[in-house]
Structures are given as C-alpha cells and as structure tokens.
Design a protein around this nucleic acid. Structure first.
Lengths: 305, 305
DNA sequence: TCAAAAGTGTTATGCTTACACCCATGC
DNA sequence: GCATGGGTGTAAGCATAACACTTTTGA
C-alpha cells in the first residue's frame, strides 16, 4: 500500500466498504451435514459444534454465520465478515447484496442496514475506512451449498473464532438487532421459509431468544395476532401426528406497499428501496411498525388500537 | 462543479457526508409566528420557538428542529438538515458533532447514529453521495441562542417546510426512532434536563408520543420502574403546590461503563465511543437494553426478570 | 377559602403464565 | 394400545386504563 506516511493517509478521503452479517438457522450438532466440517480446524477454536448434544425441550436450532478468511494484511489469515467496496452507481443495498453474493453465492431473504462504523481507529494503520454494515438472513436449507469452500466457513453464533477488525462487536450488534426484530414477520419468515408449522416457528423463536418459550402460549399468541394464515396443508415433521402448515398473512403495510426490505430468492432489487429518493428503506421505517407492543411508551398511551 | 460528465462522475468514489437531525422540546404556541405559514414562510426571518419561557406543566409541548437554508445548488434556497463532510481522522460521531456545532452552536445532549443513506438517486445529478445521519437531542433552554441566525430556523415537527433532497424522509425516520427510544432514560433526560418533576417528564412523554397519557398512571409506572430517584427538592412550576424533583437513578450499564452515547454540555467525546476499536457506540448497543419490555418476543419468555 | 396542581386509591378488564389435559397418528 | 408430539382449556396473578378522590400550596 504505497500510499505514503500516516499524515498523508489521514488526508485521504475515507474509503467506503459494505459488510454483511449473514445469519442462518442450523442444527445444534452437525445436523445439516452442511455445517462446518471440522477438517480445517487448524486455525480457530474448534468451530465444530458437537459440544452440546442439545439443551432441553426441543431447542435444537442454533444460529450460524459464514465468515471468510482474509487473504491480505491486516489480519491476514483471520476470519472476517464478507464485504466489498461501494460503487458509486449502486445503492448501498445493492452493494451489500453484491458483496454477499461474490463471497458466498447465497441470496439473502432479508437484508437490513445495521450500522455504519467509521472510527479512525478501525483502520489499523491502513486507509481510513468507513464500513456500512448490513445483516442478512438466509434459510437453513440454503446453507448447504457451502460445505467445501475453503476460505468460507460457517460458525455457530456461540462459538466464533477470533475475528479481524472490530467484526466481533459488529456481529454482537447484529445478533442483538435480530433478537429485537424477530417479532416482525418479515424476519421470522426468512428464517423458517414461506410455510411452516407452529412447532417450526416456535423453534426459530427459541433459537433466537436463546430461552425456552412455552409452546402452548406461543401458539395462542401467534394465532391471536392474526399474522398467520393456515394453508390447509398438513406436514409430518417426525413420525407422528402431522401439524397444520401456516404462512404469514400477507404483510402489506398500511400504506399499500408490500413488506419492504424482504429480498426475494433471486438477485433482484426491491422496488420500494429505490422508489422514493433515498427513502429510508429500512425496517426501522415507520410503516413497518404494525404491532407497537414492543414499545414501552405505547403502554402508557390509553386509547391505543 | 467542473467534474466532467455523468459517466465520469459515476466512476468517482462516493462522497461521504454526515447530517444531523436535531430535536428539542418547545412550546406549542405558534410562538413567534414562526410556525411556517406556508405563505412565503421561506423568507420570514422570525425565528426560534423563542424558547417559550415555560409551557409550565401545561402539557402543550412540541418537538422542534432547526434547519439550515441551502446556499448552493442543488436545492439552493431550500431548507435542509445541518451537515458537513467527513474528515478521515475523525470518528463519525465527531463529524456529526462538528457538523452540528458549525451550523448551530448547540451542543447536543444526546447523539445517536440513525441510518446511512446512499442510493445513487439521492445525488440529483451531483456527485454520488453517502450520508450518514445522526439524530440529536438538545434541551429546550438551549434553543434560545438562535433567535437571529438568518439561515437557520426552528420549525415545529408537525409543520415543516418543503425540504431539500430526501431530508423529509430522514426526519420522519428520526422521529420514529425517537418515539421508540424514549423509554431509555438517556433519551428522556436529554430533553428534560438532569432533574425534573414528574409533570415535566410527563410533558415530554406526551410531546413525543403525540397522545395524551394518564398522569396518575404515568406517575405510578415511572416510580415503580425504580429508574427515578428523588432529589429531595421541591420545585414550584406554576403558582401552586410545588412538586417533588427527581433525577434518573444513575444509569450505569451492567458492564460498568456509564450511560454511553450521552454527550455532555461541552464539546467532548465520550470515552466509550472511542474506546473499543470501532465499537458500535450506538444506543442499539446490547448493553443499553435494560428494560426489554419493548420487545414483543420477550413477552413469550417465561422466566424473565 | 378557593383554584389548581400534586399526589393516592380503587376497580374492571385483559393478558401472561404455568400446567393439566385431550386428540391424532404411526408403529 | 401406546408413545409422541399436536393442539386446547383454564385458573392465578399481574399490569393497565380510567377516573374518583384527597392533599398541598399560593393567592
């Protein structure tokens, strides 16, 4: 990086990059077979799950995320979040999508901006760097394709290796955001799939919450919310009684636009994000707040509803 | 700006800017006649909510925010959010703070990153532009200093002029965020001041919620939350019975750091933000979630507390 | 003594929790 | 029939919403 000394570097405009925290549901053990082959355990703290067979009641799902190994300094050889540069003629979301695609081949089902990091200290002697971080969700089935990629590996959320830069904090941030967003159908759907049994959805919620959730109450609450819609089908998960299959009732937002940020299966750019000029196409968008039960102040407002 | 044609511009790296949505509590009176009457409001220099000496505990507080008039194309002459460029050797937060200072002289008491906007469409033919937007809170008293600034004017949140770029959406986004963050002491405190009567705090909550809140229940709920601490003082707001004065019980977060993002009265840079390398110094930081009652999924988790 | 705001009591209602129970199915 | 998970019932406890009520002050 022959860019001269520090003061010269400091005078440079910051570089802009986009990184993505990709999250998927996976088994607690080796379940999907896909997840992390222990073969290449050379570097990191045993990324192999297997540690815990499973907690108690049902909670066998875990969150997993793919990391890429850095091939250049700084932090060469360490694991890092997938990312890439920002092209001037692309939206941030497109850049996030592209960065993600180029590293993993996976198409996210959900994509939301998380935060922008830009402290000078992040650069570690390199160029000043601003990172716009997104988080993405992919379905568990999709995690399959990656068993062999050599410099991409999936890690369970609770057992990450040491990470380059400040990526560890970024991941923590993303997980926290996920836990506070799960109530939105857009989010949960992207983890379970378009249709699901209540037990499956329950499993997702437990995996994200990291705590057991009473199934009976969960069921009632979900159904009462009117967010679910029975498909009529039945699905046999185990070898016993089949369960009813649901989907989320179409998440049309009050203003008529549809469920916003959700990204389809292919590489397409949702209309709304690009529609209004630089509109805050973010799930923190006012339009998305359909159930303000998550808002403490709401509790103080009398005639709500 | 002599930068060649469109395709040349497109190949340029995007410029990075930081903008700030500044919010303060003010009176409801169309005080100062400031209230942007849509008739030629553009030039009327009247300004500032005149600080509305005291809506007392009347509960007619409103949110106000300062805008600056653009002096160059595009959108020359229109109102826009205060903002500025990003220097490579400054943190994003510092840049936000500086941008704010240079335009308004006000020191925010609270500063949080909101979102980063970067769609190519935002540039309106200019250079590609990435804007990192912060929102800030200032106390109502401080709004005084600005009566005469010619190209800075305060507008009530419910009566904004037409804005440059996508700034209107950005403001909406900020207001939404505020309404979802008010439950955090850090936020409310910055609007009321360090000490306050319950009526004053109630007033703030009502202003932000935009709806009436039963005072009796509000009082009980607040006191029950253990977040408040009586100072022992009494304060006479009107000409009648004085009310007890409270402050927020010290908001030390579990990890020992203090209330994070809150910015002091002077231009100082809080330790934590700069401390860890690029730590997500954002109030969406996990550490800040002390009352997860705002989380719908939390309701499903049994043994909480 | 009176108005106005501070502050307290009380009740109906609805939601959450915890857990017992019944139902449907494959073996 | 029986084990297993799907699915329902229900009572205790808690929090809220609404509003009536008492207390304290300055004028």
């Amino acid at each position: 990086m022959g860019l001269g000394n520090v003061s010269e570097r400091r005078s440079q405009p910051p570089q802009i990059g986009v990184s993505v925290v990709i999250l998927a549901l996976g088994g607690d053990e080796d379940s999907t077979g896909t997840t992390v082959d222990s073969s290449d355990a050379a570097t990191a703290t045993a990324a192999v799950p297997t540690t815990t067979p499973k907690p108690a009641s049902g909670g066998r799902s875990r969150l997993w995320l793919p990391l890429v190994r850095r091939v250049r300094q700084p932090f060469k050889g360490m694991w890092a979040l997938p990312g890439g540069g920002l092209r001037a003629d692309r939206s941030l979301e497109q850049a996030a999508y592209a960065a993600l695609e180029s590293t993993t081949d996976l198409h996210p089902r959900y994509l939301e901006q998380l935060h922008t990091f830009g402290d000078p200290a992040r650069s570690h002697g390199g160029l000043p760097m601003v990172s716009i971080v997104y988080w993405a969700l992919v379905g568990r089935a999709e995690t399959k394709d990656f068993a062999d990629a050599d410099n991409v590996r999936w890690f369970p959320e609770h057992d990450l290796p040491e990470l380059a830069f400040d990526h560890r904090q970024i991941i923590d941030h993303a997980l926290w955001r996920l836990r506070n967003r799960i109530e939105y159908p857009e989010v949960a759907t992207r983890l379970v799939g378009d249709t699901f049994t209540l037990a499956q959805l329950h499993d997702v919620y437990e995996a994200i919450a990291g705590e057991p959730i009473d199934l009976a109450n969960f069921r009632r609450k979900m159904l009462a919310s009117k967010q679910l819609e029975a498909t009529g089908e039945k699905r046999r998960e185990g070898r016993h009684r089949p369960a009813a299959v649901y989907r989320y009732a179409d998440a049309a937002t009050p203003d008529g636009t549809d469920g916003n940020m959700a990204v389809g299966d292919g590489p397409r750019w949702p209309g709304r994000a690009a529609g209004a000029v630089g509109a805050p196409a973010d799930s923190t968008d006012p339009a998305e707040v359909r159930d303000p039960s998550d808002d403490a102040i709401a509790a103080l407002i009398p005639s709500r509803e």
